[in-house]
Write a protein that binds this DNA or RNA. Structure first.
Lengths: 326, 326
DNA sequence: TTGTACGCGTTATCAG
DNA sequence: CTGATAACGCGTACAA
């Protein structure tokens, strides 16, 4: 591999001249420029980013830490990040926590060892202690950080998440518009404060103090059908399912019980991945804009890196995608 | 940031001793070991991978080049890669070609600049010239390469892909076992040689020279229903759809035409992502083992890196996943 | 068992 | 406009 030194020798200039020609806009005599250019072509020179990073004590690599990649939810966010960073000539490192048999400390040490320019944490579960480690350690290391897709209170590092109150509000409004006013929210086990957001959105949409029916469903998809009688009994005619996959299994259960969607009961799902699109019936849903969330996460990292201003908390606006189910 | 030198000074030894203690199994006197350990703790030392890479002229970073990430097909493969590489302390760089507005040459230069330890190309379309560039350039640079998920003839660099002949064979066999012997293959526009694999598999399963009905469908999902009459007319009772999403839209079209699945016509899809699982009816499919493909790709890269033996062509075995549709 | 000194490929600081 | 030289942090001959 040809190095800068080789180019310099070949073009009969000093390494420093070559370096300046390549990196800065400082003018170089036309004649030497040509000689350098020729040498680069001839020797097939490619700059060595590693050496540059060592010298400048910075890399152009941003780490993305997420539970797993093979899930549309995360891969869409990651894709948004990847495109945005690529536009700014940054590379992205992927760390799938579920696959990495390392402690949080070890993972964060990996970041330091590799001198990453920034870290984007996506959708990490509360049972990881990353949040605490960021406060205790990462901020001290001066590594730019973004914590995406978890609605948590601000604690000193930039946060991004979808506006769940608004999601709940526009979802409820949509159901009401469709004359489905007896609404149930179905959700997997959820932290209290998240549930509160959904209730707030519901209240804003209904302009009342009344609460929707809340049904907590287990993780087992086969059990969802057991909740159908309860919905019937309470004369529910609109269900907002806060999990796309569960929404699909609910529609399957309805089909088996000969309940018409949306005739008898409307089903609205939260999230707009392929799942909602190909389900039968196709699911009306609240799109949380995962890709945009990723894009904005990347922008905030970039702003931190270049010492520009950035928001402490960024909220992404959801919107309704109307299909068949509601 | 504390450096090796700082540790050495603090522990009153030379940098070389610290380095050896950290990297090799060469014995160090217990007493000095303790002093070094203490210094590392006290100063919060983390080795600098960049400096190490520069010195050794190798990184532990493997690049994955793929069309896009937000697609279950690719993200599953990538996840397999990521887990396997992580187990060997390698980091993964992601490059989404569809998002990267760079020429093939520029992308490959990125690889060289960053001194990646290996490159995994996944599912790149024939209209990219990566294949040629690998032969012309990358192999010459001595960067380990894997070309995954495209059935192409061997041309000097390791290939991985699913066994499409076998996929076709076991799919056909399954349909026949279910007494669906009048079979149609539906597929999006496909290179001739790929189509041949499917025909071969069909012949192996039927033990005959006869050919299945072949229906090429356009990319537009709304048009799939237009092919239903043709299937009826030819008394097709088993359809093998070589694209998961199309399979779903076909089942939707059947539902609208009151065709029972699998009663009237069985539907078999190629690929086993979430799509097949949540579709109604749930799709019986041939699983191509994307995750395993990724895993094996990573293993081959690792073997190249460590100068171990590796296969030129690795074929991943598909298997049937029986659900409702066939 | 330990230490000295050099070089990996750059960029930055000076001086010319 | 250009060049010599010193770092960046580490590993490793070679010497002790």
């Amino acid at each position: 591999m040809a190095t800068l030194k080789d180019i310099a020798k070949h073009a009969k200039v000093s390494t420093c001249t070559v370096s300046r020609y390549l990196n800065s806009n400082i003018v170089v005599k036309k004649e030497t420029e040509d000689r350098i250019e020729a040498a680069i072509k001839e020797l097939g020179y490619v700059p060595n980013v590693i050496a540059k990073s060592l010298k400048q004590q910075v890399t152009s690599n941003v780490a993305v830490i997420l539970p797993k990649l093979n899930h549309l939810y995360y891969s869409e966010i990651t894709s948004g990040i990847s495109q945005t960073l690529a536009e700014h000539q940054y590379n992205i490192f992927i760390y799938e926590v579920d696959n990495l048999h390392l402690s949080e400390d070890d993972i964060l040490n990996l970041m330091r060892e590799n001198m990453v320019a920034g870290i984007i944490f996506i959708g990490l579960f509360p049972d990881t202690s990353f949040k605490e480690k960021i406060k205790e350690d990462v901020l001290g290391w001066k590594i730019p950080v973004v914590y995406a897709n978890r609605c948590i209170p601000y604690e000193g590092f930039p946060l991004l998440y979808p506006d769940l109150v608004k999601a709940s509000k526009i979802g409820t409004e949509h159901l009401i518009k469709k004359k489905k006013e007896n609404i149930a929210f179905m959700h997997k086990p959820l932290p209290k404060h998240l549930l509160k957001y959904f209730l707030d959105g519901y209240r804003q949409a209904t302009n009342s103090g009344q609460e929707p029916m809340l049904i907590e469903i287990p993780d087992d998809k086969n059990v969802i059908k057991d909740f159908v009688p309860k919905l019937i009994e309470h004369q529910i005619n609109g269900v907002f399912v806060l999990d796309e996959k569960s929404a699909v299994y609910l529609t399957k259960a309805f089909a088996k019980s000969n309940i018409q969607i949306p005739g008898d009961i409307s089903v609205l799902s939260l999230g707009n991945s392929l799942i909602s699109e190909i389900s039968t019936p196709e699911l009306t849903c609240v799109d949380l804009q995962n890709w945009v969330l990723g894009q904005k996460s990347a922008e905030i990292i970039l702003n931190q890196i270049s010492n520009k201003k950035f928001e402490d908390v960024t909220v992404v606006e959801p919107f309704i995608v109307e299909r068949e189910s509601a």
